[in-house]
């Protein structure tokens, strides 16, 4: 059995994530989520306040978010692995 390479699997997986973020998010339900709906039904929705963010979900903004998350995690993993190897040395 030919083994799928790690690189191929990760690249394919991230491609799926980018497709989900860029295109799939157009088909997301616009209904309030569980907590939002419960807060409306039980009278504490008005206590919630929102702040402004530079981006909104979906389309290219979603892709920007995916890239940001990926970059932060890669740096974090690199940092932690360096610490790990220096501990073992």
């Amino acid at each position: 059995m030919t083994k799928v390479s790690t690189r191929w699997l990760v690249v394919a997986g991230i491609a799926v994530a980018l497709l989900v973020a860029g295109i799939g998010s157009r088909y997301a339900s616009g209904d309030p989520d569980g907590l939002t709906k419960v807060s409306q039904d039980h009278g504490f929705a008005s206590a919630g306040t929102s702040h402004d963010g530079p981006f909104a979900y979906g389309g290219w903004s979603g892709v920007v978010g995916v890239v940001a998350v990926l970059a932060i995690v890669l740096v974090l993993v690199l940092f932690l692995r360096r610490r790990r190897s220096s501990d073992e040395a």
Binding site: V20, S25, A28
Partner: peptide, 24 residues
Amino acid sequence: AGLVATFVFATQMINFPVGAGTSG
């Protein structure tokens, strides 16, 4: 690790309906 984080981030954008005008 990078794949898991990006997959969770992307998938969290997709709210799915669970009935009664509510999504998750």
